[in-house]
Amino acid sequence: MQVVIENLSKSFKEKNVLNDLSVTFDQGIIYGLLGRNGAGKTTLFNLIARELENDQGEFYLVDGDEKLPLKLDDIFLMLAEPDLPKFLTGREFIKFFIEVNEEKIKDLKDASYYFDLVKFLDEDLDRLIQDYSTGMRNKLQMMMFLILKPLVILMDEPLNSLDVVVQKEMKDLIKSIKSEHIIIFSTHILDLAKNMADEIILLHQGKIQKVDKKIKDNPDFEAEIIDLLKA
């Protein structure tokens, strides 16, 4: 399965953010999306997730020789700063989330299974979300896509708020599920992109550029990426 984006453009007043952008993403690949501040990474994610309306272009799926629509249920957008209901506990929120989405959840398991997957501490289950750190709220977001199992997972700066131990746990978890998904994550951290992504792509001057895999394994990786983003 592939997600295809063709001729995507988006402007805000006089600023052209995405310019006739075309790219194909394959299932089973984790893509690390790099770009300078203001390059349009979050805009791209919001367009794919239909949070914004594009000026032109289309998104669709390709399954073999078949062209299919990319539906909202196929997509999960994980935000850097999730806005979750503050006056529910983590346990209450996940219970509510499962009840609301039960009809479209395949192979539903007990909530405790998902809490264990993200290594959520028992002592935090019944605390209010308003008292959670950003990292803990991001764990709840991860549980949401683990429950829904959407084809496309978009992660906007997903691991920046996690400490190094939890970050490693979440990287391993994301890698373990990649065969079932198309995963694209944006980050400013070059080491994270290098260690977590199968392929690195750059968003620069409104277009996507795929980085040669040889650069990823090059000792001068950081310098070469910076040079590409300065060009």
Rank of each mutant, 00 (worst) to 15 (best):
residue 102 E to G: 03
residue 208 I to D: 01
residue 132 Y to A: 07
residue 105 I to T: 03
residue 11 S to A: 15
residue 13 K to F: 10
residue 177 I to L: 13
residue 64 G to N: 08
residue 95 K to Q: 09
residue 104 K to Q: 11
residue 205 Q to G: 12
residue 164 V to F: 05
residue 218 N to Q: 02
residue 222 E to L: 03
residue 202 L to C: 10
residue 19 N to Q: 05
residue 146 L to T: 06
residue 165 V to T: 15
residue 123 E to I: 12
residue 211 V to Q: 04
residue 28 G to Q: 06
residue 75 I to P: 01
residue 53 E to P: 02
residue 88 L to T: 02
residue 182 I to H: 02
residue 1 M to F: 12
residue 176 S to E: 09
residue 158 P to Q: 02
residue 47 L to M: 10
residue 144 M to R: 12
residue 174 I to F: 05
residue 33 L to N: 01
residue 39 A to D: 03
residue 40 G to N: 12
residue 152 V to R: 00
residue 2 Q to S: 14
residue 80 A to V: 02
residue 155 M to Y: 12
residue 19 N to R: 14
residue 93 F to Y: 09
residue 96 F to M: 13
residue 107 D to R: 11
residue 78 M to Y: 09
residue 160 N to P: 09
residue 75 I to R: 00
residue 200 I to N: 00
residue 26 D to W: 08
residue 231 A to T: 06
residue 145 F to L: 00
residue 168 K to I: 15
residue 77 L to N: 10
residue 76 F to M: 12
residue 117 L to G: 10
residue 158 P to E: 09
residue 172 D to V: 11
residue 140 L to E: 03
residue 158 P to H: 08
residue 165 V to C: 03
residue 6 E to S: 12
residue 49 A to P: 13
residue 138 N to Y: 00
residue 99 E to F: 00
residue 203 L to D: 03
residue 225 I to D: 07
residue 149 K to A: 10
residue 67 K to Q: 12
residue 204 H to C: 08
residue 200 I to P: 00
residue 156 D to S: 14
residue 188 H to E: 01
residue 45 F to P: 04
residue 1 M to C: 07
residue 74 D to A: 07
residue 143 M to I: 14
residue 91 R to L: 11
residue 223 A to V: 11
residue 190 L to K: 03
residue 13 K to Q: 10
residue 84 L to Q: 01
residue 138 N to H: 06
residue 206 G to T: 09
residue 215 I to T: 00
residue 92 E to W: 11
residue 87 F to Q: 08
residue 212 D to M: 03
residue 148 L to I: 10
residue 50 R to H: 09
residue 83 D to K: 08
residue 11 S to Y: 08
residue 30 I to G: 07
residue 131 D to L: 02
residue 18 L to R: 01
residue 73 D to M: 13
residue 95 K to S: 14
residue 214 K to Q: 11
residue 114 Y to H: 04
residue 65 D to G: 15
residue 159 L to K: 03
residue 2 Q to E: 12
residue 103 E to H: 09
residue 202 L to N: 05
residue 231 A to S: 09
residue 146 L to A: 13
residue 194 K to M: 05
residue 161 S to F: 06
residue 145 F to M: 02
residue 136 M to I: 04
residue 144 M to Q: 15
residue 182 I to S: 06
residue 7 N to H: 13
residue 93 F to H: 05
residue 8 L to C: 05
residue 64 G to V: 01
residue 228 L to S: 13
residue 142 M to R: 01
residue 54 N to M: 14
residue 179 S to A: 13
residue 49 A to R: 00
residue 65 D to R: 10
residue 10 K to P: 08
residue 171 K to F: 13
residue 180 E to C: 08
residue 65 D to F: 09
residue 149 K to V: 04
residue 148 L to E: 06
residue 87 F to S: 02
residue 139 K to Y: 09
residue 190 L to V: 11
residue 108 L to T: 00
residue 85 P to R: 08
residue 121 L to F: 08
